[in-house]
Write a protein that binds this DNA or RNA. Sequence first.
DNA 1: GCCGTTTTCGGCCCGACTGTTTTCAGTCG
Length: 585
Amino acid sequence: MAWTNEELSGRFREIAELLQLSGADRFRVRAYERAADAITAARVDLAAVPRGELAELSGIGTSTAKKIAEYLDDGEIAMLVELREKVPAGLRELTRVPGLGPKTALQIHTALGIDSVAALGEAVAERRIRELPGLGAKTEDNIRDGIRRIGAKDTDRRPAADAIAVAEELCALLRRLPEAHEVAYAGSLRRMRETVGDIDILVASAHPQPVAEAFRRSPLVREVLASGDTKTTVMTVRDLQADLRVVAPEAWGAALVYFTGSKAHNIRIRERAVRRALTLNEYGLFRRPDDEADDAVSERVASRTEADVYAALDLAEVPPPMREDTGEVEAAAARALPAVVTLEQLRGDLHGHSDWSGDGKATLDEMVEAAVARRYAYWAVTDHAEDLTMNGVTRAGMVKRRAVIARLQEETSLRILDGAELNIAIDGGLDYDRDFLLTFDWCVASVHTLMTRPEREQTARIMAAMEHPAVHAIGHPTGRKIGKRPGYDLDFDAICEAARETGTALEVNASPRRLDLSGEMVRRAVEAGVSLTISCDAHTVGDLGSMRYGVATAQRGWARAEDVLNTRDLDGLLAFTAAKRERWS
DNA sequence: GCCGTTTTCGGCCCGACTGTTTTCAGTCG
């Protein structure tokens, strides 16, 4: 279903880009960009919306609605077809050069007839760019650098997992400074996007210099790229750029909102500010001075905390992972924002390994101790089952492990759930036999093999596994590894339907290398009424600390505590497993 | 092209930085 929306959004974004390169009015350009954003954020399939109601969506007017209808009927938009013919492909290519925007690209194309990056490079070498009005030698140098940077590694986004360790280490270093009042990382990492372009670290301090100094001297810093009064940019030893911004303590909240983004979310709330005769920037929310009085000092309405800023805009405070302009501002205004699940609400972790499986790095004793330290009510040890040739535990091994669990259970009030991570064979079959499977407290079933089979087969194998009475959750349901491999092909709507029907949970795997389900899929699962688990899939003691990434991912999907199985107490959890057994035995 | 707690025209998010300029335009995040 989402295909139609995605295609439509892409068409309107292309119209905006081409209009810009035709020198169109910038507000008209922006209107098409906003239409594209509105379509991306739409929670319904536009193909299913009655034509007369399309213009009711915010950001879509009569003209855009007509073009949407045109696309749905004809498969193309005449205006876009014309624009594609009119705007040379080479002109579009020029804007790929960092620092070279549509205005300058158009000027260079018109004046010099340049229609490729290669030709641009020649013009630079021949010093023809600096002859153009408004452009000089420096601009020419910057274009040369920009051409060199195309395709360079440092413009790529990286898995959030790569950035987290660096960001947290830098924050820890800054927190030790007496000058630092508050320290946090912001940006897409705080929103828990799956990939990040750089690391944004924010410090509240009245004394920026020593903070910047400590930052520059960190052993994680390979090179200082720029350092001014309030902003320092460095390249870290992990090839990730990191920005430090120091703000006055009274501006902390406004700065945190600003630097957390997303950009689309910020625009949305600033527009709201404008409608209230306010203006919002990284220093605070201000009342706009009455016109004429140019030198009047504008009054600061809010800025100290994020909660202050949202409250002054008459909005419920939006959790950072939800700040993507996918309806959260409207919901916050209507006080209809769901109370999303929090880390504190989790009572246990339902997917973890010990060294009973070959890939577990800690003993069962150590893992249990770590789970106790997290004050969980329960923890499931789900060592790999026997079909995973290299790492699996045999039936005899599992029986022996039960003796160890029994011994450990005597020493702790944490309930240790005797579990397994089963392997879903290509025909949907599982490890061991049915009677033995029913003796476990908790089973996660996952796909570990044959990941490139077609969608129909992958969907069918997982649906078959969900019908087994011993299978309580599907582990890392799509099998993706961020930045490494995409998930296997699945009919996710069918998976959700089957999960709800069979009383099987879908896992939000909290490992930052996986985040599987993704935030977007969590949202679809929640809308379909599916129960979720948030689990670390820990293979080390330290992995148990990944839970917050899983929680943030669930928040991106607007999941509430009641959508998440491991917010339940032990009795509530056991009621879920018992219900499945009764229904399917 | 869109939109309205200043409503059907006249606005449209905000600031830093850069380079080119004597007051601003373009680009970026």
